[in-house]
Design a protein around this nucleic acid. Sequence first.
DNA 1: TTTTAATATTGAACAATGTTCAAATCTATG
DNA 2: CATAGATTTGAACATTGTTCAATATTAAAA
Lengths: 202, 202
Amino acid sequence: MSNAPTATTRRREAQFEALMQSAEKRICENGVGALKARELAADIGVALGGLYNIVADMDDLMLRLAQRTMVRLDAALEAGAASATAERPVEVLEGIALAYYDFARQNLQLWRALFEMRLKNPALPEWNIQAQLGLFRHMNAPMTALMPAASEAERILVARTLFSAVHGIVFVGLEERLIAVPQEALAQQIRWLVRAACKDLK
Amino acid sequence: MSNAPTATTRRREAQFEALMQSAEKRICENGVGALKARELAADIGVALGGLYNIVADMDDLMLRLAQRTMVRLDAALEAGAASATAERPVEVLEGIALAYYDFARQNLQLWRALFEMRLKNPALPEWNIQAQLGLFRHMNAPMTALMPAASEAERILVARTLFSAVHGIVFVGLEERLIAVPQEALAQQIRWLVRAACKDLK
DNA sequence: TTTTAATATTGAACAATGTTCAAATCTATG
DNA sequence: CATAGATTTGAACATTGTTCAATATTAAAA
């Protein structure tokens, strides 16, 4: 059972990658609503029906795109966490929060797609849920440093609260349907909130 | 120019009200994605094309639904603000935040529709933007009490940040696609965040 | 009341979209 | 190189929102 990659499977992988890139390009240009089966098929030189050999359906396509985005987001958060020394956990959390903001800003449409995708079947596959929950991992160390006496459950709860709060500020702040808050002011507000929350933890 | 309401306009108003109620019922039962032109038309006993005499299109329908929801939300926030005396601005803000959470929980699908509606034309009409911004008005008094020395611009910025943070906690917390946080724990977290943020304002 | 011009309503037709599947084509193996 | 199996195709279908010419209704004028 050597399982050497046959020509067909290699092409299939190339098709998948091309599909992802084409989809990402279209999302970046026109938002997640701009994903059209026919256009994507044309982009990658495949018949309409051929899409369904590469992904199960549009839900599947969007979930896989979300997965890719989350992998990149995860790396961005990791870098953000590394921007401060572990001896200063508040600064680490600040770094994570600002990295989140920065990622959202620089990948606005892909980031929005994470929340805007409307799936026919609302139940998320396990691998997607795990990826979402995995994003919290960067907060483990600083949270433990900040709340040494707390139980793990409590730390997770607070981490989630903090992350959600920052997400809310970013989400509303980047909503261009409303009057926009200046970029630097937004970063300032995020820093303030993280610091204020952490101050209170002690 | 007495402008007595003619039979036609009275029926038109009744149709509009029936349409809104039918749409709200369907959203509550199956989410905003469950709004179908044909089903709504059937609900209110009108031909398919007749819908377009009552609302301009589906975007218009959803924006008007959002408007109704925001009016109710506004009342809920007002009541929440009134749950504490003005002498204790932090408690007033807490009351507003908890009222927001409560409204979202009790009107889950209608509240979600505010964010999930995907409009063909993403530009919001002025009356809708004004309604959104108007929701912040309940924070004016307590914010002024908490930041007497700050400029109005600064107060508005902080109010928005606080509101966004609370929104984020509620939004993520009610996302049933992930592991849910127990209701009481969520309320507790909201209270904590509001208090921590306010503590830092002094 | 009757007539009639304006108005409102209808529903068939259209356009855009995701999805399916029988037929055509291609691929890998004996 | 022949052929069984896998892959690809694209026409057909189902579901949507939207339009508009034809029909029916309403309200003003006679």
